[in-house]
């Protein structure tokens, strides 16, 4: 079934990117298949966020090719298949008068044609998404009046409300307490296992995610490693790179 999909959901070939003259990504090639749970790891400034933004068409690569769902990014139009939790979600303007419900409703727009209006049926989807992240009680709360971790959950609800095929999360648990983190990763695990949503997760919590992921990409301007979890644990290239932290990611709990 899903393993024999005719094309990878994400196809990246020979991508280079520089901010001005600072090279940030060099010759990145990778594929993400349906059903994968990919963890992208790497130190601060290694280009993780940049890579995701290029894949999603927010930034344009200097060279290289991107395909989503077998379609060239330039002509891609099935945006409702994507969910995205940006890293900057944790830095929102706390004075912006927008309720949790309004933020989650934004996630429904990708599946709509002009004029993109929110209907009665949409309200149900919004409620369900909020329940899924345990935030049903905060539906009418202004986003600025929620804690950082609660805000993060609202952004996750926004990303999954449209039932995407693939979910991109850029350090979604920054500022989230340990207990909530564990529950959150359990949620991601079940989205991946039960709902068959492909997940791409940028993270620094390499220890915590190891029991869910099946693929790992290790980035530091170049793609140092990209492959499945087992290979990753045996790889000697990674050993130097992680300086002893590899066991954290390979020890399945």
């Amino acid at each position: 079934m899903s393993d024999h999909h005719p094309y990878p959901l994400v196809y990246v070939q020979g991508v280079n990117f520089a901010y001005g003259t600072t090279l940030v990504l060099s010759e990145i090639s990778l594929e993400i298949s349906k059903g994968d749970f990919l963890a992208i790891i790497g130190p601060n400034g290694s280009g993780k966020t940049t890579l995701i933004k290029i894949i999603l068409g927010i930034l344009r690569p200097d060279s290289g090719q991107i395909k989503l769902f077998g379609q060239d990014l330039g002509s891609f139009s099935k945006w409702e298949k994507l969910g995205y939790v940006p890293q900057s979600a944790s830095q929102i303007d706390s004075l912006f008068p927008v309720s949790a419900r309004e933020v989650v409703a934004m996630g429904l727009l990708s599946g709509k044609k002009f004029p993109r209006l929110i209907t009665r049926a949409d309200e149900k989807a919004i409620d369900e998404a909020l329940e899924l992240v345990d935030m049903g009680k905060f539906k009418t709360r202004r986003i600025g009046e929620l804690s950082g971790g609660q805000q993060q959950r609202i952004f996750i609800a926004r990303a999954i409300v449209n039932k995407p095929d693939i979910l991109f999360l850029d350090e979604p648990t920054t500022g989230v307490d340990a207990a909530t983190q564990t529950r959150f990763y359990d949620l991601l695990g079940s989205l991946n296992q039960v709902q068959k949503i492909t997940i791409v997760l940028i993270t620094h919590d390499i220890g915590v995610v190891s029991k869910y992921v099946n693929k790992v990409a290790c980035l530091n301007q170049k793609l140092i490693f990209h492959g499945n979890h087992e290979e990753f644990c045996r790889s000697s290239v990674v050993e130097d790179f992680l300086r002893g932290e590899q066991h954290l990611l390979c020890h399945r709990h």
């Binding site: 933004k53 999603l56 068409g57 927010i58 139009s77 945006w79 409702e80 994507l82 995205y84 940006p86 900057s88 979600a89 929102i92 912006f96 927008v98 933020v103 934004m106 996630g107 727009l109 990708s110 926004r158």
Partner: peptide
């Protein structure tokens, strides 16, 4: 509110 995510929604 969030122009980058809006772009990823096809706006």
């Amino acid at each position: 509110f969030d122009s980058e995510s809006a772009k990823v929604s096809g706006i």
